[in-house]
Lab assay of single mutants.
Amino acid sequence: MSRVPSPPPPAEMSSGPVAESWCYTQIKVVKFSYMWTINNFSFCREEMGEVIKSSTFSSGANDKLKWCLRVNPKGLDEESKDYLSLYLLLVSCPKSEVRAKFKFSILNAKGEETKAMESQRAYRFVQGKDWGFKKFIRRDFLLDEANGLLPDDKLTLFCEVSVVQDSVNISGQNTMNMVKVPECRLADELGGLWENSRFTDCCLCVAGQEFQAHKAILAARSPVFSAMFEHEMEESKKNRVEINDVEPEVFKEMMCFIYTGKAPNLDKMADDLLAAADKYALERLKVMCEDALCSNLSVENAAEILILADLHSADQLKTQAVDFINYHASDVLETSGWKSMVVSHPHLVAEAYRSLASAQCPFLGPPRKRLKQS
Rank of each mutant, 00 (worst) to 15 (best):
A302K: 00
W194N: 06
P366T: 14
E334L: 06
A146F: 08
A302Y: 02
S2T: 10
L204P: 15
D310T: 09
V250A: 01
L218A: 00
Q209R: 08
F57M: 08
I258F: 11
V246M: 04
N72F: 07
F199N: 14
H231W: 11
E97I: 05
S105E: 14
D130C: 07
L204N: 05
V322I: 09
V224T: 15
V224N: 11
V224P: 08
K110S: 10
E253D: 01
Q26Y: 09
K110L: 12
K110G: 09
R221Q: 13
Q360D: 15
L308G: 09
E145K: 06
Y259T: 01
E247G: 02
S15N: 05
E283G: 05
F257W: 08
G111A: 02
L364P: 12
R370W: 01
C205V: 14
R198Q: 09
E304C: 10
D130Q: 12
A109P: 09
L65M: 09
E47H: 02
L364Y: 15
R370H: 04
A116E: 10
Q165K: 11
V29L: 12
P346S: 03
K74H: 14
L311W: 05
L356S: 02
F324V: 15
I307K: 03
G148V: 04
C205R: 11
S59R: 02
G148A: 01
L204E: 00
K369D: 06
F251I: 02
L364S: 13
Q360C: 13
Y34N: 01
C23Y: 04
A263G: 05
V126P: 15
A11Q: 08
L90E: 01
E79R: 05
D77I: 09
N72I: 14
D201A: 00
R99F: 15
Y34K: 13
M117D: 12
T319H: 05
K318C: 14
G16V: 06
W194G: 06
V322P: 00
Q212L: 11
A329L: 06
P73H: 07
F125M: 00
M1N: 00
F136S: 07
K74S: 14
E12D: 01
F363G: 11
R121I: 15
K95D: 12
V30E: 05
H231I: 15
K101F: 15
L107N: 11
M288F: 08
K372Q: 05
A122V: 05
K53W: 02
A100G: 01
V349N: 06
S80Y: 05
E46A: 05
G132S: 00
V163D: 04
F199P: 00
S21P: 10
I217H: 06
F363L: 14
P182Y: 06
V51L: 07
D278H: 05
C93G: 11
K110M: 05
T37R: 11
L150R: 08
G192I: 12
T25F: 12
F133N: 12
V126Y: 15
V30S: 01
Q209P: 11
P264Q: 10
E235S: 01
A116I: 15
L356M: 06
N301Q: 13
E351N: 08
P362F: 15
L204H: 04
F102D: 00
S54H: 00
V164L: 08
F199S: 15
G128R: 10
I38M: 02
S222Q: 00
L371G: 13
I106F: 08
G75K: 07
H345Y: 08
P9Q: 14
D272W: 08
S14H: 10
S33I: 14
L149C: 04
G192S: 11
K135S: 15
E46V: 03
Y24F: 04
H312R: 04
W194C: 05
V168I: 10
L311K: 11
R221F: 15
T25C: 05
V51M: 12
E232I: 03
L193K: 01
Y259I: 01
L143A: 01
L86I: 06
N72Q: 10
V299A: 04
S330V: 11
L266F: 06
L285S: 02
N169Y: 03
R45A: 04
A314P: 08
S55K: 15
L274V: 02
E234W: 07
S14E: 15
S96K: 03
L273S: 01
V349T: 02
G111L: 10
C68P: 00
K64L: 07
Q209G: 14
T260M: 08
M254T: 01
Y83V: 09
R354P: 03
F211H: 14
R124I: 14
S358Y: 03
L76I: 15
E97G: 03
V168R: 01
A207Q: 15
S358N: 03
L107H: 15
S59Q: 05
A207W: 13
V18T: 13
A122P: 05
A357M: 01
T260N: 09
D130E: 01
E183S: 08
D278E: 02
P7W: 14
F211Y: 15
G208N: 13
H347C: 09
K268S: 13
H328R: 02
R240I: 12
I305H: 12
L142Y: 03
R284C: 07
S167C: 07
F133L: 11
E300Q: 01
S33E: 13
N196I: 13
W36R: 01
K154W: 08
T200S: 14
L293G: 07
D188H: 07
D82H: 14
C93W: 12
K101L: 13
H328P: 00
A109G: 04
R185W: 09
L76T: 11
L76G: 15
G132H: 00
R3N: 02
S59H: 15
D82F: 10
T156W: 11
I170E: 01
D331A: 07
F136D: 00
E20R: 09
V349F: 14
L65D: 12
D278I: 09
S105T: 07
G208H: 14
A303F: 09
K28E: 05
E242V: 02
S313E: 13
R185Y: 01
L143C: 02
E50N: 04
K53T: 09
L69H: 13
L282P: 09
F229W: 15
V29C: 08
A116D: 11
S340Y: 12
T335S: 10
A352T: 06
P7F: 02
S344K: 10
S358G: 04
A11G: 09
F104T: 15
E247M: 07
K64D: 04
E20G: 04
D153Y: 08
F199A: 15
E113F: 09
M254L: 04
P9H: 05
G191P: 11
S355R: 05
